[in-house]
């Protein structure tokens, strides 16, 4: 998924290129600029999540029934006290959107990290040892892949009750397959290379070989998958929260805000639109970053 395309540059050596450097081409420029913008957005989100108590003008859960469904400040009837308006219980939208960043990023990063660890261990084991462990683990991957993970998440969260950690756990456990497959194929191609054979010959243990020689070589593709998985996990968490099955009601999430907001679409668009924009912006920024990472890590795949 690229915004730009590799063929474009060829015919356009428009600006004089610095000596020894590739000519700067519009498509590549746009791509880099886009990734830079995405990273900037992510930085802002991260700051918002960490410093939410300082940044938010209000307690996100403070209700004020006299101030229900006030429009954003720039609309008729809005006030500077609530820049983005208030929701159906008179809570400040801006504060809620800012606090919502916390859950989104926490779940996204947590799930990707957990899935990455599980997937890397499984992939290393399968690729390094080969044989029946490989066959069993990869069959497991097939089964896991065939199992609709959002449904598993729904069922687990629905039955075991809502909770931030449940969501992270479920999204982490169900997301390991793509990590494992990449690690496995990388390791299989590295396994027979000289430096691994030599290390084994001088008596380095399997675990040490994996840690010192194999793992560093798979970090780049792992980072790409991980980033894209963060976006997927953020959307999955928002989906669960939208369905009312994610985290508890009192935790502020964009998904549950959207669900609330949908009920008031006819009169108060802002209740749904602001968390929706925040969610889309986050997912977009993470996806763009992931794409850019992939382009850097694997130039051959840049147009996939």
């Amino acid at each position: 998924m690229t915004l730009t395309s590799p063929a474009a540059p060829a015919a356009a050596p428009a600006r004089p290129a610095a000596r020894g450097r590739r000519p700067a081409v519009p498509a590549a420029l746009l791509r880099n600029r886009l990734a830079a913008v995405a990273l900037a957005v992510l930085a802002v989100l991260l700051v918002a999540a960490v410093f939410a108590p300082l940044l938010a003008p209000d307690d996100p859960n403070a209700q004020d029934l006299l101030m229900r469904l006030k429009p954003p400040a720039w609309q008729h009837g809005g006030s500077a006290a609530h820049l983005l308006g208030t929701d159906q219980l008179g809570r400040d939208m801006l504060s809620r959107v800012v606090y919502g960043t916390r859950v989104s990023l926490l779940v996204g990063a947590g799930a990707a990290l957990l899935a990455g660890v599980i997937g890397t261990v499984i992939g290393l084991a399968a690729g390094y040892f080969g044989g029946w462990p490989d066959r069993v683990l990869m069959r497991l991957a097939d089964v896991q892949l065939a199992f609709p993970s959002i449904l598993l998440a729904l069922a687990i969260v629905g039955f075991f009750g809502s909770g931030l950690w449940y969501v992270i756990l479920v999204l982490g456990i169900t997301g390991w397959v793509s990590y494992a497959r990449v690690v496995r194929s990388e390791v299989m191609s590295l396994r027979s290379r000289d430096f691994v054979t030599e290390a084994r010959a001088i008596g380095v243990t399997d675990v040490a070989i994996m840690r010192r020689h194999l793992l560093p070589n798979v970090m780049a593709p792992l980072a790409t998958i991980g980033t894209l998985h963060v976006a997927a996990a953020i959307v999955a968490e928002a989906s669960l929260s939208y369905l009312g099955l994610g985290v508890p009601k009192e935790t502020v999430t964009w998904g549950s805000m959207l669900a609330d907001g949908q009920l008031y679409l006819g009169t108060s668009w802002w209740v749904a639109v602001f968390p929706g924009i925040a969610l889309m912006l986050t997912s977009l920024a993470v996806n763009i970053t992931g794409d850019a990472l992939r382009d850097v890590a694997d130039p051959k795949a840049y147009r996939r």
């Binding site: 730009t4 989906s239 907001g261």
Partner: peptide, 17 residues
Amino acid sequence: MTGVLLGQSTPPFWVGI
């Protein structure tokens, strides 16, 4: 491709809303 990126990043319930 811009549309594709948007479409892939937008959760269906937000599209619906």
